[in-house]
Design a protein around this nucleic acid. Structure first.
Lengths: 111, 111
DNA sequence: ACAAAATACATAGTATAACAAAGTATATAG
DNA sequence: CTATATACTTTGTTATACTATGTATTTTGT
């Protein structure tokens, strides 16, 4: 079959949905990068490469949709915790509207 | 607000979802390019630029997921009609499984 | 005690796809 | 006869996921 096409397609679908997923996860509480990858992998079937997440988080920070703070651990490597900003919350609500619409449209087309 | 970010995000979401939408539309009957754009714009709120669709259709043809044939019109410009191939149908069913899963995952995260 | 794996973050380079913009050509409406 | 709509095409730009690689610490296995 066309393995490569589907594999590549899945990666393309992630462009955009990942940002959306991350922001939605951060809506409820703070997470550090590695934890985000794990949480999403456990609760969904979405695999996020580290080389994907960290640049993404930096973009979100540059756009001021998320904030970050280093938290020292009693043992182990310090963790960088991310949280939504006010702008992030507002942006996310716009994204949620678009997504809901898109999802309905696709559902209608697939039927 | 962060207009550009959301605008840009929408364009990113289209990567992958557009392919998926087009293939699903072609599942039911044949369409020509310009018609696909119109149909999708009417029935959903998704806008597809011509410079997006035609290269996309060519990719799908190269991947042998769709076939095309020129149809002369009694009046007007000839139209290039697209239809799903066997490989296209199989690929689409794989994509549908992934999409269903993704959609459920995102719904769970949004709640 | 030592090696391997897991945790945690970061960056450089590559590939892909949407989009804007421009072009070609025909038909129709004002 | 000019503007708009129809219909397809190509070029260049931009954004982003991924692979691969690197750093450093801690835990697990034998």
């Amino acid at each position: 079959m066309n393995e490569t096409f589907v594999t590549n397609w899945k990666s393309q679908v992630k462009k955009g949905t990942l940002t959306f997923i991350i922001l939605n996860v951060l809506k409820n509480s703070e997470y550090y990068g590695y934890e985000l990858i794990e949480q999403i992998r456990k609760h969904t079937e979405i695999e996020i490469a580290e080389g994907t997440l960290y640049p993404l988080m930096n973009r979100l920070k540059t756009e001021e949709l998320v904030d970050s703070k280093w938290v020292e651990q009693e043992t182990g490597i310090p963790r960088k915790y991310y949280s939504l900003t006010e702008a992030g919350i507002e942006t996310l609500s716009q994204m949620n509207i678009y997504w809901e619409n898109l999802e309905k449209s696709i559902k209608k087309i697939i039927q």
